[in-house]
């Protein structure tokens, strides 16, 4: 597979380390009353869709940036790739 790195262009997937669902960006608030339940969901429960999936890839053999790659798990078509740090800031602004 080739991943369209937002800064470096098309890069071979072998340069990356895969982590999984991009929902890992949404770490729960440890001070909230339901933190125990929220963390259980965060750590163990994830969707495993057959289709479009937002997921985290680490450019470990490259510039060490974390990317959010939107990939169709049925066809391996890659619809988008963005820097996780920008996405994380964005979602915070939106929230």
């Amino acid at each position: 597979m080739l991943i369209p790195h937002p800064l470096l262009g098309l890069r071979d997937a072998q340069e990356f380390t895969y982590l999984g669902d991009a929902s890992l960006l949404n770490r729960p608030d440890a001070s909230s009353p339901d933190a125990a339940v929220a963390f259980f969901d965060y750590v163990y429960l994830r969707d495993n869709p057959a289709g479009v999936h937002r997921e985290l890839w680490f450019h470990e053999q490259g510039d060490r940036s974390w990317l959010i790659v939107t990939r169709n798990t049925l066809t391996h078509e890659i619809l988008n790739a963005e820097l996780a740090c920008e996405s994380a800031v964005k979602s915070e602004v939106l929230a």
Partner: peptide
């Protein structure tokens, strides 16, 4: 060594980019 660095970058870029 590699895993700790990877996880720290994850925390820096994905959890607390601020």
């Amino acid at each position: 060594a590699a895993i700790v660095y990877r996880n720290m970058e994850f925390a820096r870029q994905c959890l607390w980019p601020e």
